[in-house]
Amino acid sequence: MNGKQLRLAKSYLWEVICLLSGFAAMAVLFLILYYIVRRGAGVINLSFLTNLPTPVGVPGGGIGNALVGSAIMVGIGTLLAVPQGIAAAIYLDQHRESRLAIATRFAARVLTGVPSLIVGLFVFTLMVLRTGSYSALAGGLALAVMMVPVITLSAEEMLRLVPSTWREASLALGATHRQTVLRLVLPAATKGITVGIMLAIALAAGQTAPILLTALTSRFWLENLQQPTASLPVLIYSYAITPFADWQQQAWGAALVLVVMVLLLNVAAQLFVAARNREV
C-alpha cells in the first residue's frame, strides 16, 4: 500500500467508526423505547390511568393520583416560572450589557448546572422544614426553580431575534417602553418563547429527586396543596425498587406514560420551531 492508499484507508476507517458511533447513539434511544413499550404497554388501560394505587397483590392499581399530582406540581411550577422567566428575559434583552444583566445571565447559567437534587435540598429547607410537611406547593416550587433559568435564557434568545429596528420604529412613533415590549416585542417572540416553555415543562415533568425531597409521595388523591403528593417519576422510582412483580410492571407502565408525554412535548416543540422557520 502506498502512502496515498494508506491515507484513504485511514480516512474510511475513521469514517466508519464515526458512523458506527452515530448509529449506536441512535440505537440506544430506540432500544430503550422498545423496552418501555414492550414492558409497559401491557398494563396501560383506562383504569390504570385513573385508579388509585392498590397494595401489593391487589389487582386494579393505577397511577391516577400520581398523574394528577404531577400535573398540579408542573402546573404550579409553570405558573411561577413563566412570568418570572419572561420578566427576567425582558430585562436581559433591554439591558444587554448592564452589570445586573451580566450577573443575571451568569446566575441563570450557573443555575441550570446545579444538580436537581440540590434544588430539592434547598426547597426542603425553605418549605418542608418550615411548614412541617411535604407538600405539592413545595414540589411545585422546586420545579419552578428548575424551570426559571431555562425559560429565562431561551426567552432572552428569542427576544433578541426581534429586529431592533422594530423597537426603534415603535419608540419613534411615541410608544413607551412598556408598550413597545408588551405589544410589539413579546408578541413577535411568542412562538419561540412558547417552545422554550414547552421544553421546560418536559424537563420538569421528569424530575424525580427534587420532588422526592419536597413532595415525597402519597397513595391517595390530592385533597389540598399542603400535603404529601404523588407524582409519576417518584411512583416509578418507589415501585421499581420494590421486589414485587406487579408493582415493577406498573413502574414500566408509568414510565411509558411519562416518556410518551415528554417526547410528545419535544416533538410538538420541534414542529413549532419548524413552523416558525417556514414563516420567516
Binding site: 447513539a25 441512535m26 414492558r39 421528569g206 417519576p233 411519562l258 419535544n266
Partner: peptide, 23 residues
C-alpha cells in the same frame, strides 16, 4: 438524526434508571 439525539436528552433520567435496573 440530530433530533433523535435531542430526544435522548429529553428522556427523564428516572427512565434510564428503570431500564438500567431491569434490562
Amino acid at each position: 438524526a440530530s433530533f433523535v439525539v435531542e430526544l435522548l436528552a429529553a428522556v427523564p433520567s428516572i427512565v434510564y434508571g428503570l431500564w438500567g435496573l431491569f434490562v
